[in-house]
Design a protein around this nucleic acid. Sequence first.
RNA 1: GGAGGCGUGGCCGAGCGGUUGAUGGCACCGGUCUUGAAAACCGGAAUCCGUUUGCGCGGAUCAGGGGUUCGAAUCCUCUCGCCUCCGCCA
Length: 411
Amino acid sequence: MVDIKKIRQNPEDFARRLKGRASRSVIDRIVVLDKSRRENLRIVEDLRARQKKISDSQSARKIKEERRRKEEELKRVSKELNGILSEIPNVPDDDVPEGFEDKNEIIEVSGRVPEEKGPPHWEIGKMLGIVDFETASKMTTSFWPLLKGDGARLEMALINFFIEENAKSGFDQICVPYAVNEKAVFGTGQLPKFADDLYRLENDNLYLIPTGEVPAGNLFRDKIFAEDELPLDFQIFSPCFRREAGSWGKLGKGLVRNHQFHKVEIFSFAKPEESDEKLKNFVSVVCGILEKLGFIYRVVLLSSGEMGFSAARTYDIEVWAKGMNRWLEVSSCSNCRDFQARRTNTRIKRKSGEIVFAHTLNGSSVAVGRVFAALLENNFGENGEVPVPDCLKKFMGKDRIEPFVATSLAN
RNA sequence: GGAGGCGUGGCCGAGCGGUUGAUGGCACCGGUCUUGAAAACCGGAAUCCGUUUGCGCGGAUCAGGGGUUCGAAUCCUCUCGCCUCCGCCA
């Protein structure tokens, strides 16, 4: 949630700093509603004050009646205001480029992109029998993954490797609910604007989490931290569920964009003055993991139009995938500043007594399915084998990925 | 799924129709004492909104919504959450 005072104070400046993320007319509407809300509030409060001072039942009743009428008006205005306000995305940092994909800035490239190409991972996965979308679609619909044999082992190995690496960097592990209520999804900013992307459990009015960020961000709803209790760094392994409505054309092949994928998320609650440094740390943690996997990666500062709703600044980290012959986003690290904390009411009490909203940061460390895909493509050798990177051997318990043959069929 | 109980400030815990935003304890902050710390003693301090240059002033908040009343943390009602017992179950 954006700070209404910033809009009230200087609507022009605010609209400019949003860098095209909301229309000017919406901002103007907020200004009007805000003014109306304050006027009505003043009237209602004045009536309440008068009512409180009167003990004579006749006139008190009269004032009460009038007060209730005004309260209705106040409620109506407040509701519209909050509705609009909750759909305004976060204000990008000043140095975030304005625009869309072509305005993204490549900050760092870790190595030279190889000349040679190879087969895409869906072909490798099918060949080895470890990725099986055909069978998956018999029990569900398209774009849900089914991994078998060493495919399943590799998935788990990656997860365990990521968790171990994040733990070394100081992220405490927590396990979270995979279905959450409406307030929680509002808190991190996926609602109200992006309801179509979420799976909803209608009977219970719960939502399947689209990312571990959602439960993580709601860990300290309505909490006031003492200053020295922060920062807090967590890692959350979870499946992520996304309807991907409206992106059917972009779903593509293989494991790149599915309705379900695994991710280890890193999430921090920080003091405002330390969140910039924290974001840099997130990026270096992710890059460290990708280096150990032997990937070539690049870090991209997203432009205003490419960032998520809650982010003030986002770095995407992409790895080169030899088979698809393209960069593949495997992580997105964002500083949301106080945007989510306003929605979850997560605050800090300074030593001075001042109360401020906490800053929150989130990042993928890392998206499992896409790393799985890149690993198959990048490690696929001419002999048709896929060697396991050193860092994963102890989690895989073997040094190459073998074709899947169900043991019950093998003999 | 059935029966019952409970939700009060950072935490614990009183209050169950009338200056109670709320007694008390712990934790916290400042001070006295001490070489320093602890203990003891004294003092301070809830949050949000509106208004004001500021002191301040007004309003709201005892899970959340609605209601009764001149007046509600206290009564009624619905919703949500937690706990206990029974049933079912990995």
